[in-house]
Amino acid sequence: MIHTKGLTRTFRVKGETVEAVRGVDIDVERGELVAFLGPNGAGKSTSLRMLTTLLPPTSGTATVVGRDVVADPAGVRRRIGYIGQGNGAGHSQRVRDELICQGRSYGMDRTACHARADELLDSLDLRSLAKRTVSNLSGGQRRRLDIALGLMHHPELLFLDEPSTGMDPQNRANLWEHIQQVRENYGTTIFLTTHYLEEADTMAERVMVIDHGRVIADDTSARLKDDLAGDLITITVQDGEEAAQAAQTAERIASPHDVTVEGTAVRLRVTRGEAVLPEYLRALDAGGLKALTAEVRRPTLDDVFLALTGRSLRESGTAEQDGGKA
């Protein structure tokens, strides 16, 4: 569905060349649900804008649904749907009119447009707003309309740029329900960008982590955690001296650089923590050390990002300006 090779985009900002996206290779197959995860300014939106023909690449190639984005942008546009960061509906337009216009833009005939618009108005709970002017809608209602616009022509590949930004939890859940439905009913391939860890974690089957314009990890969320972060075992002992001994014991089980001591607490990064913990406790017992507390925590995608970049995604999330808008 999506294949890119060395996709690159640079911008000139105040006489300086900014590399927003640096040689990104993406391969997404039909039916996948992929999240592009990274802090603001990582190059997510810029990549998406190249894939949706909004922005020509500086170098590299991209094929989307079998069409080259540079050679045949119209061919790409016919086959994809796009829900951008902003509101897609014109403010002075009426809800239903915009849906019809969207369908017509994709070459659907009038009858099909009306039928499809009704279907979406019902399923997105917009029926009572059909004749409303867009400027009178609430933020959540507008976002639902954006989704309806993106789904109007049954695209086989749907791009979403930060779809849930600014949504309350209820609307977010609602959005995801819809996306799941679309996948189940039509087998739509979905590619979205997000900087919400939880969203990428719970919803996407595959997460591509992007930072400073490069893809730095690409796998299922579970495997990223296992491979890059691992479970975190924390035990506490009586005092610092015991902690040092406990750490020595730990180094027989885990590799030394994954063991840290902080006061009376000893932490180990391991794979399959639930199996390692009992073994570790037995080893401590055998050595005459008594663990006071013990805990295993599954890693989050933030731990993955931390392991990859040395930064927390939560902290870097707001620090940088989004290069995609440059």
Partner: peptide
């Protein structure tokens, strides 16, 4: 419409 995103939406249509 460029600020709201409506123009962008139309640009992605064929």
């Amino acid at each position: 419409e460029m600020q709201t995103g409506a123009h962008e939406r139309l640009l992605v249509t064929p």
